[in-house]
Amino acid sequence: MLPLMLLLIMSCNTDETQTVFNFSELTLQEEFDTDGAPNSDVWGFDIGTGSNGWGNNELQYYTDRTENVQVQNGVLLISAQREDFEGSSYTSARLLTKNKFEQKYGRFEARMRLPYGQGIWPAFWMLGADIDENPWPAAGEIDIMEVRGQAPSVLIGSVHGPGYSGGSAISKEYTLPNDRLDTGFHIFGIEWGPEYVNFYVDDVLYNQITPEDVTGDWVFDKPFYLLMNLAVGGTFVGAPNEETVFPQTMLVDYVRVYKYMNENQN
């Protein structure tokens, strides 16, 4: 078996130039090792309810209070609480690196343990850094991880852009075999380069999106910034029900970003 495989690999390699990438040089490393608020040099917050529940009819009010976001014992905790607050019935937190950290291409990953339950919507995602001048969806969005709490084994990775946003996003669901997202830590990542975004969970590559897959302009050749949030309710997941347990907490062990390096160009 082994000689045959070797033969096959070699045969593919004869006259094409193989492009080899590695992602070994860290450009962002947030390990959440200091108790308290997350590092303000990297992380800012969206506060409030945005317009129209952040565009999705979400039910939570985002704050930067310790009830909703804090680092404890080497882990960042983003907690959704059921409480009356500023006219909303839930509170939670949304962290973002806008104007603090942005990057074009590379490997972006986070190790997280996710919450669960009807109406619970954790996400680890990116937006085009030019969004203020070039409004969504033209700015582009890459969803590294989204989960509907009522489907605790199913991960969703997507890209949004002009002509393929919201319900028409280019998206793929991946079901963890014999496992769930709320019982242990998993690594959610993308490897992103010119003309592709590869989606990973742990060591599984479950999707690749290229310009041929999108039904509009490819808007992923510019810097993006990172977001992490825990939404409650909204059109994507529906409202929590009487069985949804609160508080729900998203645990983030680390966020790491690696530089994109094309070895052939070095």
């Binding site: 669960y116 084994s153 014999n178 496992d179 769930r180 709320d182």
Partner: peptide, 8 residues
């Protein structure tokens, strides 16, 4: 079966 998805 060991489903691995029996939780909470």
């Amino acid at each position: 079966e060991k489903l691995g998805t029996i939780a909470q």
